[in-house]
Amino acid sequence: MSFIEARDLVKTYTPRGAPVVRALDGLSLSVPRGTVTALLGPNGAGKTTTVKVLTTLVTADSGTATIDGIDVAADGGDIRRIIGVSGQYAAVDENLTGFENLDMVGRLYHLGAKASRARAKELIELFDLTEAQNRPVKGFSGGMRRRIDLAGALVTDPQVLFLDEPTTGLDPRSRIGMWDIITRLVAGGTTVLLTTQYLEEADQLADDIAVIDHGKVIAQGTSDELKSSIGGQRIELTLVSEDDTPAATEILRAVASSEPEVSTDRRTIAVNVAHGPAALRAVLADVEERSIRLHDAGMQRPSLDDVFLQLTGHAATIDDESEKAS
């Protein structure tokens, strides 16, 4: 059994005056010890609800979840001793200083006054928060608050760290700073489950990506596995003249695993292929033989965007409106 194991989680909400929302609809997930797994999905896919069930904030209607063999629903107290959680919004007390926030968390973990103070000092050094140490959090930037919040999740050096959209709403510089911190933690061997709606973030940070949509995990694997799961690579030709389009389309169709896609100006044609390098060589030979002039010829691996589109039938970042309509 994996370190974190969720089986068939179902959670429904009934918002006032609205139909029942199935936030989790039979979600299953496995996270091996010492790995970083990203839950990737659009807004409303069930990422936050999954984290809430696993961190004892919300009880699932049905299904089971365990961390290190401990049942999340039955033994919440034991779970809370081994987890660290940093939420979507920095949950820090604005009126307390950075130090007071961390010290308070340490004391609530029952570390004792002395150890709590020492740990708070240590984390302030580690997270480069000296500026926030003795001033109330109120008035600090979003990035700084997130760092304090994340430091709060690490007060006891938890066995597993949950990060719910750790960089949502941060400016690019703070985002990269946050990625740095997470990368350092991971090097230390902490098991991390993070949620994100950014493909790039999942690609950067995670060993394993679970794609989640409508309350279910619809695919799980490494970034490479997910990319190859939707069929090898993609070959794209850009022609000098659209007179050559029919001939070039024929050439591509011969190696393709998908119907050729022709751009609106009829000069760019793309197909998916099973074995990229061989197919590209064959295509270029045929093009040469028939004297078709090219602006550009290229091969690329599918992006996580393509994966997402293929798996869900919609793009990764969709707004709330279309989510409600679907």
């Binding site: 107290g77 809370r80 001793r81 939420g87 968390v105 973990y109």
Partner: peptide
């Protein structure tokens, strides 16, 4: 939420 994830 933060308090509720602590063993307090």
């Amino acid at each position: 939420d933060r308090f509720r994830t602590l063993p307090m």
